[in-house]
Amino acid sequence: MANVLVVAEFADGKVKKTTHSAVTFARTAAAALGGSYSILVLGSSAGMAVDELAKLGAAKVLVAEDASLGNYLAETYAPTVAEVAKDYAVVVAAASGFGKDLLPRVAGALAAGYAADITEVLSSGGTLQYKRPMFAGNAFGICVIDSAVQVVTVRQSAFAPAEPTGAVSPSEKVGIAPSGKAAGRVEWVKYEQVKNERPELAEAKVVVAGGRALKEQFYELLDPLADALGAAIGASRAACDNGYCAPDLQVGQTGKVVAPGLYFAIGISGAIQHLAGMKSSKVIVSVNKDGDAPIFQISDYGLVGDLFKVVPELTEKLRAIKAG
């Protein structure tokens, strides 16, 4: 049976947008394999996700609902995912914090190969080939996975979110597989959410990103600019490390990967690790006082200047444009 299983990301009663990107992958992969795709959702209230997931064209929506799946932990989720996955050719989730934590563990349970963060799926004589960035996006490798089940995570920005098909998929309950000893030796303590009313970084059409140069004025300067643009805020590692902004804003090789229509790099030098997370943006604008900063080499529009003057002026003028 050459079918594809999507592991949905579901939290606080909501299906995450990441799942829709994984479904887009599944449509292509299932078509290439001549099979179908199903969606598995796990959680203590997973049933709540069924209506939304059933619209995405899956052969089935599989629901693993159990109190033991209250707060996500790889140790408690992996056994059930692995058990269900045994009947599929490919298991996929988005390369979010969730997918990158859980799916390699699932691969371990299945003695399967795992390819992370893939940006394209190709098919050659019925075999799936996966394209994935390596060396901070400076090379792409095209790989095949030689195991009965193939496990992958997909880069959200490379797969447009799947739209509803108009049909409604049937749903089915699945049992919880027994956890190993590991589950008894890990305890979920607490989650401190960073308040964020802005669009999700990975999904925003416009991203305003700030670097070390913004110092303590990071939000003071970027909030109004992001408001004027309806943008998400991102950051370089240096801005995160220095505590100028929340760590989950980091864009780059080891942070979030974004590909918005418009990306502003403000006071960011353009280290390769940063470029790895934003190089695929459609239009890149950078503001930097150093005319030789590497960021200019990949920017469509570069403005050499002091951001402390440029950003307020830009914000003012954008507001004026918006006001008509």
Binding site: G97, R185, V186, V194
Partner: peptide, 11 residues
């Protein structure tokens, strides 16, 4: 560090 914040666990 997870998406959206910091998760504390004990192992």
């Amino acid at each position: 560090e997870v998406d959206g914040g910091v998760l504390e666990i004990r192992v």
